[in-house]
């Protein structure tokens, strides 16, 4: 079953993705965050928001690249979405496969637990308490997920709930399906 997903993702990762040096990637992202912290005078709430906005703009384009590479159509259930996001999405763009877990009873909320986070390698948050309480260092991922899913008509609420950088035991992103947006229909059709 999930073999097919994994095999597809591996194949795409091996043959259809241009790779860049992961340290270069990590350091580039790090300097973006550091620059934002300077720009917003360490107002981490604003930094989070800005990272999310940047991610959103990435997400709405990344989804097209994702679909073009994978040839997938729309998912039929949120469970399927979760599998595709973690096993194919994260795999082909970041080469990690977060664990899909903590499903809520109604099947509308789940968590992605990242064992490794390529964005946060070598990173230490500033020593002040403020940063470790307020800053979600990898918040760009939240925006990417929101943007990408919104383009396939899924309105989701995404947020970090844990980050190893803050001293938590894991890095966890929580996704909550708010609603499935309806496709627009031509005037006079509804």
């Amino acid at each position: 079953m999930s073999k097919t997903i994994k095999a597809t993702a591996d194949d795409i990762w091996k043959n259809k993705v241009e790779k860049i040096n992961s340290e270069l990637f990590t350091l580039t992202y790090g300097s973006v965050v550091a620059q934002l912290c300077r720009d917003f005078h360490n107002d981490y709430v604003q930094v989070n928001a800005q990272l999310e906005r940047m991610g959103f703009n990435i997400g709405i384009r990344l989804i097209e690249d994702f679909l073009a590479r994978t040839g997938l159509g729309r998912c039929q259930s949120f469970k399927e979405t979760a599998e595709v996001v973690s096993k194919i999405g994260f795999k082909i763009f970041l080469n990690v496969v977060p664990l899909v877990t903590n499903w809520s009873g109604d099947g509308k909320q789940f968590s992605l637990v990242l064992e490794e986070n390529p964005l946060a390698e070598f990173v230490e948050l500033p020593q002040d308490d403020k940063a470790s309480r307020a800053l979600w260092y990898s918040n760009v991922l939240v925006g990417v997920l929101k943007g990408a899913l919104q383009m396939v008509q899924l309105e989701v609420d995404v947020a970090f709930v844990k980050d190893v950088l803050r001293g938590d035991d894991a890095t966890e992103i929580r996704l909550k399906l708010i609603k499935v947006l309806r496709d627009e229909v031509p005037a006079g059709e509804d």
Binding site: S2, I5, L72, R74, C75, S77, K79, E80, E83, P186
Partner: peptide, 28 residues
């Protein structure tokens, strides 16, 4: 738009929650 809607209505099997997870790439 209309033909696409007709096609979707005519041929799409009723969605089954269990099979979708076992066969996630059969979205087509």
């Amino acid at each position: 738009f209309s033909l696409r809607n007709i096609a979707n209505k005519l041929g799409t099997l009723p969605f089954n929650e269990d099979t979708s997870v076992t066969d996630p790439l059969a979205i087509h």
